[in-house]
Design a protein around this nucleic acid. Sequence first.
DNA 1: TATGAATGAGTTTTCATTCAT
DNA 2: TATGAATGAAAACTCATTCAT
Lengths: 205, 205, 205, 205
Amino acid sequence: MSKPLTYAERKKRELREEIVNTAFDVFAEQGYHEAGVADIAARVGMGHSTFYRHFESKRAILDQVVTNVIERIKAALAAENAPEAATSTEEYRKQARRIAIALDDIFRDPRVARLMLIQAGAVDTELEQRIFGVYELAVRLTTGYFDNGRDRGYLRADLDSTATARAVVGLIIGTETLLINPNLEPAQRTRTLDAAVRLMLDGIT
Amino acid sequence: MSKPLTYAERKKRELREEIVNTAFDVFAEQGYHEAGVADIAARVGMGHSTFYRHFESKRAILDQVVTNVIERIKAALAAENAPEAATSTEEYRKQARRIAIALDDIFRDPRVARLMLIQAGAVDTELEQRIFGVYELAVRLTTGYFDNGRDRGYLRADLDSTATARAVVGLIIGTETLLINPNLEPAQRTRTLDAAVRLMLDGIT
Amino acid sequence: MSKPLTYAERKKRELREEIVNTAFDVFAEQGYHEAGVADIAARVGMGHSTFYRHFESKRAILDQVVTNVIERIKAALAAENAPEAATSTEEYRKQARRIAIALDDIFRDPRVARLMLIQAGAVDTELEQRIFGVYELAVRLTTGYFDNGRDRGYLRADLDSTATARAVVGLIIGTETLLINPNLEPAQRTRTLDAAVRLMLDGIT
Amino acid sequence: MSKPLTYAERKKRELREEIVNTAFDVFAEQGYHEAGVADIAARVGMGHSTFYRHFESKRAILDQVVTNVIERIKAALAAENAPEAATSTEEYRKQARRIAIALDDIFRDPRVARLMLIQAGAVDTELEQRIFGVYELAVRLTTGYFDNGRDRGYLRADLDSTATARAVVGLIIGTETLLINPNLEPAQRTRTLDAAVRLMLDGIT
DNA sequence: TATGAATGAGTTTTCATTCAT
DNA sequence: TATGAATGAAAACTCATTCAT
C-alpha cells in the first residue's frame, strides 16, 4: 500500500508530525484562541510562514491534532470491541476496568484532556460535532456491551442500555474533566477513577 | 435593604438585565470568541457603544453571565443542603432524584449547558478556575451527603466518599454535556437522566 | 451699554464663568486632549450635557479660556503702554522691571503657563495662530519701547529694535516655560526672573 | 562594535529610519494627537499594520523621534563642552556665537521646533519630564560656562550663574519658539538670532 | 431647563495569511 | 524550499455630541 519514501519525504513527514505535536502542546497550554501560529512555529524552531507549507491554516492543524486523538480513542475502544467476550460478572468487571484504564491512559495526558474536554468544543460548530460524534460512538459501543451483558444475565434485566451507556460515557468524560483541575492532589486521580468504576458497577447503595 | 428606585433606575436595571440575557444567548450560540460586542448590542437593538455604558468590557459581561448561572447552581445545591435529612434508603433515593431534577432544571437550558460546559472553560485561566471552583463545591456538598448516608448505614460502608462524590459530580456534568448534542431525540434526555440516577444508586449490575 | 440683568441672566453668567474657570484648571492639569468634557462638568457639579447649554463644544470653551488669558496679557502690556514715559535710564530700568513683574504675575499661575506655553499650541493651527498673534503684539509693543529708548539715547544706538524685541519676548516666554518645571526650588523663580531682567538690560559681560 | 549587516537587516533598518523620519514630518505637521498611525503608514506607502512590525505603538515612535532630536541637541551642547576653553572676552563671544549657531542649526528645522517646543510637552507627563530634563541639562552646562567666565574675569562678578543660565536657555528656546511663526519674513530669523546673542552678551543698554 | 442615555465616528492594535526573496 | 516582511480585515474601546425625558 505504501511506496518507499524518499529521504526528503520522510523528513517532511517527520517535521509535519513534530508540528502537530507542538501544536498539541501549545493549544493545550494556551488555549486555541490564545495560541498563535507564530507560537507554534517558534517552538518548533521554524519561521512562521513555513508552517503554511505543511498546513493550510491554523484551523487545519487543530483538526489534525483532534483527529489523532480521536484515532487513539477509537483504537482504545475498539481493542475491547468484542461484546461477547465477557461471559460472567467477574469477566465483565475486569473488562470494564480494562476499558476504563485504557481510556484513562489517553486522558491522563493533560494535553488530551484540556484539548478535547475544554478547548475543542469552543472552537466552532464543526469541531463540536466531531467531538459529539466520538461521544456517540462510545455510547453505541457501550450500548453493545450492555445489551450483551443483559442478554447473558449478568446485568440488570431492566437496564435501559442506550440511556445507561450515555450516562456511563458521561461519567467518564465528566470525571476526566474534573481530574483536569490542577489543584487536585495526585492521589485523588486513582481513587476517583476507582470510585467511578465502582459506581458504574455497583452504584453507591 | 432595597431603597425605592426611580423610574430611570428601574429602566436602567432592566436594560442591564436585558443585555446580560442577550449576551447569554449570543455567547451560547456563537461562542464567546466568535461573538462580538456589536452582535450583542445589535440584538438588543442599541448602538454598540451603549454597551460600554453598562459594562466595562466584553469580558466583564461574560463574568456577569457566569456569575448569575453559578448563583443559580449554588442555590439549587443549597436547597437540599441538609445532609442529615435523609434517614432511610427510600428517602435517600428521593433526595438524590430531587437534586438531579433541580440541577437538570438549570442545565436543560441549552444556553446554560453550552456556556458552562463548553465555552467558559476555554476563555481564560481565571474563568476556568471559577468553574472548577463550582465543581469542587458540588463535590464537597456531595461528600457530606455520602458521609451521612454511610454513617446511617444506607450506603456502602466501604464508600470512598470524596472520590465517589467527584465521580458523581462528573457523572452529572458529563451527562449534561452529552445531552447538549442537538442531534439527540428529546426523549433521550429523560431516559438518560433516569439512567444516570439509577446508575448512581444501583450501578449496572 | 449694559442693561440691567435679570436674576436668571446673572446666574447663568456666573455659571458660565465657573465653567470657564474649571475648564482652565482641568485643561492645565490634565492637558486639553486628556481632559474630557465630562471631567469639567463633573468638577463643576453638573451633568455633562448641561455643558452644551453654555458652550458649543469642547474646543469653544478652550477658546474662551485662552481669550480670557490673552485679555489679561494685553491689559498688562497696555498698562505701561506709554513709550514716551521713560525719559532716563533709571526710569527705563524701573519700567522694564514693572512690565516683567506684571507679566510674571500672570504667568506665575501654573494654569496660565501650562495652558499657554505647553497645551494651547498643540491643539490646532487656528489656536497656534492666536498665540503667535499675542507674541507678535508683544513684539510690536516692545519694539516701540526700544525705538523710544534709542531715540532718547539711553539705549544702544545700533539696537535692531524689532529683532531685539523678539528676542526679549522670547526671553520672557522661554524663561516662564522653564519655570513651569515643578522640580525647581521655589527660590529659583525670583532669582531667575531677576537674572532675566538683568540679562535684558546689561547682558552678561 | 558593528557587525556586518545582511542585506535584509540593512533594508529593515532603513525602513525603520524612514518610518521615524516620516513620523517626524507627520507629527510636526499635524500634531501628535491629530496624526494617526495610518497617516504615517500611508505616507511611507505601507499598510498600517506594517507599522507595528517596527514599533510597538504610536507613543513608542514619538519617543524614538524625540530621542533622536535630544541626541542631536546633546551632541551640539557637548561639542563646545569645554568651559575652560575661552580665555578672553573675544573668545567668549565667539564661543557663544558658535553654540547659538549649532543649536539654531538644529532648531531651524521647523519639524524640530514644532515637535520639541510645541507638541511634545502636550503629550503626557513623562515626555514633558524628558523635555524639561534636556532644558535643565542645558542650564547646567551653561552654568559651567558662566562660572568659568566669571572666574576668569570676563563676566560680571555678581553674575548669578544658575539663574542667568536658566534665563539664557529660556532666551534660546523662547526665541526659537517665536521663530516657528510661519508668517515671519525669513530675514527676521538671522536678525533675531543676532539680537538674541547680542542681548545675552551686552544687554540692551 | 437640566440631565442621563444613547450614539457612531474614529483610533489603536492584533494576527492569520500571502508575498517576495 | 524556507523565511521574514507585508498586509488588511476585524475587533475592542473612547468620547464629543445629540436626544428624549
